[in-house]
Simulated scan of single mutants.
Amino acid sequence: MGPNPVDDPGPGPAGTGDRTAVSRREFDALFEAVRTWGRWAPADRGAWNRVTAEHVRRATAAVRSGKVVPLALPWNTVPGPDNPRPALHHMTDLGDVESPEPSTHKDFLAADYHGKAVTHLDALCHVAYRGRLYDGRAAEDVVGAAGARFGAVSALGPLVTRGVLLDLPAVLGVRWLEPGRAVHAKDVAAAEDALGVRIGEGDAVLLRSGHGRRRGDLGAWDSAAASAGFHVDAVPLLAERGIALLGGDGDSDVRPSPVDGVHSPVHALAVAAMGVPLLDNLDLEALSAATAEAGRYEFLLVVAPLNVPGGTGSPVNPVAVL
């Protein structure tokens, strides 16, 4: 049984929402309020240190049907307004007969994956604010041409924890949130109530805005300029709950940004202040249908990034297990 829709607090027919402006001074105060520098060792695992073996055990014990839902977008090699640097895929061997048999077929993959078209994980070395990475490390001291010596994706390893889906279109009774619709702390609380789930310590929180459904129906747009996502006022609630991972079918940030001079303020708060890795560009449409059918919005989440020493992140194919 699905959620009971609640009134969309945003104005406009499709809920364009309120991106209440935040000054740079207010943002800097918020950054200080949620930052967790010096809290954990090893520091370059950041908030992922919250996820213990007991967290994983509880997450696996929550599996009931065994239904597996992949969460990655298809590898996107087609240029578009949301894909200015398309991923590459070409064949390097078309089955030429070798001696001895068998013949083989081989292909090549490459991507400038930090963008809007490839499902990927952001490591802690990916985002700096005022020149500082998570834990106060100076970005210029630890990130260079050979990669990062702190906060690399190789420090994270496979990520396994309880996932929580905040399915805002299902809660609001709309097909999608319009680009620019901000998700505030009050929206997160209302979604928890409507979906019958509560965010807890060590959780991965995934925000569905309906981005994929809108793109499928209306076509691609420049989502770097306009997208639904979290307003910065939702971050203290997520910090208070002790989340370990944040993601969505966009990149978590509402755009245009509500903070003057900060294009991706949720990135800055989550990664650089809180040490929370991000999952960007998920496909959450099948998960939305599966959670609605199951009548529950929690699941086991498994994310296995590539082991890239010094890497700022990795393309991933996360899976949810219900």
Rank of each mutant, 00 (worst) to 15 (best):
W48M: 15
L94F: 07
Y129M: 02
A87V: 10
L322T: 09
V143H: 02
P236W: 01
P102W: 02
G80M: 11
P236G: 04
N281V: 14
E32F: 06
D18W: 08
A47Q: 03
A110Q: 09
V78P: 14
L177D: 01
G250L: 01
K116C: 13
A270Q: 00
A189G: 10
K67L: 15
V171K: 03
G216C: 13
V68S: 04
L284F: 09
D18I: 14
D7Q: 15
G313S: 05
H184V: 03
G210V: 01
H211L: 12
W37F: 07
F108A: 14
V321G: 09
N49C: 15
A29F: 07
S314H: 03
P179S: 01
A268Y: 02
K186G: 05
A239N: 08
T77F: 07
L88S: 12
V143P: 01
G219V: 09
P79K: 06
V183Y: 04
A59H: 10
P169K: 05
P256T: 05
A290Y: 01
V276H: 04
V69R: 00
P158N: 02
I243F: 08
G157A: 09
T77P: 10
R19N: 06
P84V: 12
G242M: 03
L94A: 14
V303W: 00
L121H: 02
